[in-house]
Write a protein that binds this DNA or RNA. Sequence first.
DNA 1: GCCGATTTGTCCGTATGTATC
DNA 2: CGATACATACGGACAAATCGG
Lengths: 241, 241
Amino acid sequence: MPKVKYDVIYKDLKRKIETEEYHFQQFLPSENTLVLEYSCSRNTVRRAISELVKEGYVQSIQGKGVLNIFQPVEQSTFKMGKIESFKESAIRNHQKYFTKVVHFEFIQANKKLEKKTGFQEGTELIYIQRIHYFDKKPLIVNHNYFLKELMPQLSREIAQNSIYEYIENTLGITIVTSKRIMTVEKMNQIDMQYINLEEYNCLAVVSSFTYNSEGILFEYTQSRHHPEYFKFVDIATRRND
Amino acid sequence: MPKVKYDVIYKDLKRKIETEEYHFQQFLPSENTLVLEYSCSRNTVRRAISELVKEGYVQSIQGKGVLNIFQPVEQSTFKMGKIESFKESAIRNHQKYFTKVVHFEFIQANKKLEKKTGFQEGTELIYIQRIHYFDKKPLIVNHNYFLKELMPQLSREIAQNSIYEYIENTLGITIVTSKRIMTVEKMNQIDMQYINLEEYNCLAVVSSFTYNSEGILFEYTQSRHHPEYFKFVDIATRRND
DNA sequence: GCCGATTTGTCCGTATGTATC
DNA sequence: CGATACATACGGACAAATCGG
């Protein structure tokens, strides 16, 4: 992240909240106070605070102040409102992970796939199936469909490591927006083959549509998770419309 | 919603996107153009646009413009990034709904409940179980825990209708932030009693913690959904940190 | 109930930086 | 290189909500 002012302030406030330098259910210093503290304009302070609001750390109350409502949430496997790769997530949660590529194929989108993924019929795609392990337990089956045109060099070896790392660092593509849909589905043949669901007969499924900085859809992924190890966190704020 | 300028602009842009007055994968008029169109400052236009970014309608690309990436999403049962009551959601999706109160009790939080809900042991609560029907099919089992102190008059009759309506309109409490956690759980006795899961043996579970404008937790709800009729949509944008 | 001080919310105008073409 | 477009930042003004006297 470029070193921009509002981001520095945001990170500093966040740290102070997490380390309880600012106490739970107490007000942060007023915006005007923070302006003096950080020698910046009120807009910049407000920008930093608005990030914290989005993440559910604080709540601004007109006429009163900015209230700290942060509680050290039971660590969640996947953060929301962010795009996070499997590897990043694993590292952040201090777990051992391992990825196995079980299928790698160049395909063309057909009608059925078009409906599911949004890629037009005939589009050249790379289809990859990967199994993700946490602590040697297979927990996630991943079906990735990449736009071949944008990453013709993508190989099995790269898929073995982090594809996102390759996309961002090597190809220099910036991922901007991702739409995700969470559902629960009955297990299928492939799930059964790789994951031990024990007495469960369904999985948590996250389908995501990822756009690059040109606004074009370049990836569709379906992640099928073992229910016991799945958690999806979201912060909602009321917007009246 | 108070009639504020950025909101008027936001709604107008949103309408133009939804009605395809602005076309998919094309750029919106530049910020400066919009400034002239709406006779406002650039900040105000940017504020409106940032709302659209949050909702995944557009994507701003520095040096190029604001790109329309809206696709009329397959209608989703539950919107994300918003707090929405069951009734509101049902109306928006043009479905017939019906709510049945199957349990209504005044209780005190014990240790176990404290761990689950966040309400301190000994806190006086109202515990309600409700079954939600769409088109006569029971699809959701709802367990609500309300802070009794804030709504001592809450009755079975009110629970029969929309509790949120009562809270907002009658009590005048404003709901501000809600933290939600989505998981998949095996069905329990109560689920089995009320919902016909057919061959499924688990449900989609949404646990939510709702805060009022004072920043105090006043509701914990666990919603247990029939998997076939459950969908959770989310827009993620990359923030580097 | 009113008034004034404080605090957040909205809005404006301007300047400068950075990316794209 | 210049023109255009979005991104960051500043400072100021007034509105709206809260709270204490």
